[in-house]
Design a protein around this nucleic acid. Structure first.
Lengths: 183, 183
DNA sequence: TACCCTTTAGTTGTGCACAACTTAATTGTG
DNA sequence: CACAATTAAGTTGTGCACAACTAAAGGGTA
């Protein structure tokens, strides 16, 4: 079951809705405002982000096929290619992931021969993640990935940069809200 | 291990980088352009979307706590609250999910007493998903959710609408690219 | 030194997402 | 009508994400 459905009669997923969406706030309030379907707008917002993220995953899944990397593994490799070896903790800060996710992920990457893990000498609690020769070499085969991705996204470089900035701000705001209230 | 790290020395997750990010393209190219670290920009773009999506999930996880709904279940409920009963197939079109994801998800929602599933009479292949009284009633308790979410996001209504439109376009472009090339 | 508190990885359990597959019902075409 | 192709839902297996927990090391203070 794949993802090019004869779409349902709903503007959210309707291609023709791309401009209509700009007026969704108006349309969503046939009632004055109070009970006015906030849930409807919420749906559209949630969906947009959630769906975009999954669509992006799907794209990378395809583009990364011949590297044998999953998308999250690719993200980890990008950090390691750029910054070199680092402790699991720090990698997790870059990726916004905790050890509950990273430990098994890194174990799989180690099985694939891409990275090596070693207990730090100074601090036995810490584990250093290091690229193997094979992992380093993989960078060459990944050179084409970003271009294919940006191409498929249909975004101009400008738009991409802008979108990224917005999303980073959004993430920061959400994290802040979570940590404040979440005492 | 939680998610407010003493952040690493990387602009992607650095709060002060919110404006600097606007010039990342320039900074990323100390080399002319050709090999110019496209992988670096790619990382920032991927990360932004992936991280924002997960941060959003995290927010909803908290906001939905007293509804006993997970975020994906909430998304399904939003569709059902708005449109009423429908076949699994159509629900999947709204949510951009296939039966491999929906079947177990709906089974859990059924166990929770929120929905009921019934084989269609006209077409024995189809299964109709219907809200139970409890599921319908839950809408009341969820009324506050969107407001809390938009509040935590720090977005103005305008920005939210604009961001949503961009993300919908992005999703459409990615899906199109996937289906074209993926013949 | 002894004790406690913090930090870093890892483990366990649950749920989501998706590919690949199965089963059963329906549709289309000769 | 018969039979192949299509469609809807479900199942299986893998991987990611996260909460809650454990284990072990490090650091600080009485």
């Amino acid at each position: 079951m794949s993802h090019q459905p004869d779409r349902p009669t709903d503007p959210t997923t309707d291609r023709a809705a791309e401009h209509a969406a700009d007026h969704a706030a108006d349309r969503a309030a046939p009632e004055p405002q109070p009970g006015g379907d906030l849930l409807r707008l919420d749906r559209q917002l949630c969906f947009a982000l959630h769906a975009a993220s999954r669509a992006f995953d799907g794209l990378y899944r395809r583009v990364l096929r011949d590297t044998e990397l999953t998308y999250p593994q690719y993200l980890a490799m990008l950090v390691l290619w750029e910054h070199g070896e680092m402790p699991v903790k720090r990698l997790g800060e870059f990726l916004r992931l905790d050890s509950g996710t990273l430990s098994p992920l890194l174990k799989r990457m180690q099985s694939a021969g891409l990275v090596q893990r070693e207990r730090s000498a100074h601090d036995e609690r810490s584990v250093t993640v290091r690229l193997t020769a094979e992992g380093t070499a993989l960078k060459e085969r990944a050179q084409g990935v970003p271009l294919k991705a940006i191409e498929a996204s249909g975004l101009a470089a400008e738009e991409a940069i802008d979108l990224r900035a917005r999303l980073l701000r959004l993430t920061a705001a959400l994290d802040a809200a979570l940590s404040e209230e979440g005492a």
